[in-house]
Nucleic acid binder design. Structure first.
Lengths: 212, 212
DNA sequence: TACAATATACCATAAGTATGGTATAGGTGC
DNA sequence: GCACCTATACCATACTTATGGTATATTGTA
């Protein structure tokens, strides 16, 4: 497997390169201290896997993933980071990262195992993910999947407010809602003035962010 | 921790009870061979945790979870099963199960660890899940998330239009979107005038109806 | 080269949404 | 009874979103 390492910390980068070289099926093709010269390196030879540090000065890891997946779709990106930040993981996933490992907790062996899985298997079927992160991501999706009704309970809304919120959530206009539940648009406005502060939002659009 | 075991296999039930009793912080409160008499047992004393076998004759494990979470919301349900069936996991999650472990792969120690986490922590923050299953569930949700992208393809939108539609879908205001993708609000309006007819809609709110 | 498609931008107007205020009637609980 | 919450309604104003029109620069392609 041909590997590119994009990591600003010289020590860790070299350490990783040496560690990987110890595995007969791993060849470290490129070593970069930032993501600015990806094109230059990749022009000579394309790696199978790019190990990318998230926290880098200049062009950061997330941007690097985006660039690689867009311009070099055959290269699979595995993120390396010290912090298990859910937002970062989701961002990287959205931009097409293929895996997410944590520097301290995941050993070289674990890294090699992960990239082997990626290299041999189907990108869509495997996403090497650190256990702690897997749980966080899972929670995120579970939260997202929880029934809307259950979520509404958390905001101490009255039955009327729930009813209205659901109609808003389903994309209906004020007119439609007022007609449907037989109140005036003014009354509807009054209800909404009570609902939004409870959810800490300021517009219809943000309801999606609350209820998924 | 007070534990109830609901498991039709006598051998495994007793084995589990004995195993759990070896941990000083575990007390097996009830042992049941089916889920029919939950009320009778729970009337005398409520457990903290219910370990529930999925495959039981009569009232099955999924139904048991439902009954317990509805009537005894303080009791946390951990499912035990031999098969890593994704559908089952999702069903149990929807009905409020707090964890999902596999009989053969997850040892007693793992079970105890899991219920300790549940007992001490917040139900919303932890969901003990067998690693194999975690991956499956993760894939399921990732796949589910991808369908939005697939749906967009059906409407023959340009990349810019897709980008804008997704931002609209996520509840962002015109101002926010214009700032995010560095175009003027006027240009954004022009794009939207091109997008809505393609989707046969007339307002932001209706996007939810299209993309779910 | 010329055409089509895309992306950009501005103007104007109408419709919808957000937020402030004020007010009345019915129900709950102390 | 009185305070409190809920639901109802109206007024006014500001902001956001929707839709019409017109126009220009870029890109790819017939």
């Amino acid at each position: 497997m041909l590997i590119a390492i994009i990591e600003d910390n010289n020590k860790y980068r070299d350490c990783l390169a040496i560690g990987l070289a110890a595995f007969p099926d791993c060849t470290v093709l490129h070593k970069m201290s930032n993501a600015l010269h990806i094109d230059k390196y990749f022009a000579s030879e394309l790696p199978d896997i790019a190990l990318i540090d998230i926290n880098m000065p200049g062009l950061d890891g997330v941007a690097a993933v985006k660039e690689i997946t867009e311009n070099y779709p055959t290269v699979k990106c595995v993120m390396l980071t010290v912090n298990a930040d859910l937002d970062m993981v989701l961002k990287c996933m959205q931009h097409g990262a293929s895996g997410y490992l944590i520097k301290d907790k995941d050993s070289i062996t674990k890294i090699v195992d992960s990239i082997r899985i990626l290299h041999n298997g189907n990108y869509n079927e495997e996403f090497p993910l650190n256990g702690t992160l897997a749980n966080k991501v899972l929670q995120y999706f579970l939260q997202k999947d929880k029934t809307v009704d259950a979520k509404l309970d958390a905001y101490k809304l009255t039955p009327k407010q729930k009813e209205i919120l659901l109609l808003l959530y389903n994309g209906k206009s004020y007119k439609q809602i007022a007609a449907e539940i037989n109140i005036s648009v003014d009354t509807l406005n009054t209800h909404i003035k009570a609902i939004y502060p409870k959810l800490n939002i300021k517009s219809k659009g943000e309801i999606k962010g609350i209820l998924g």
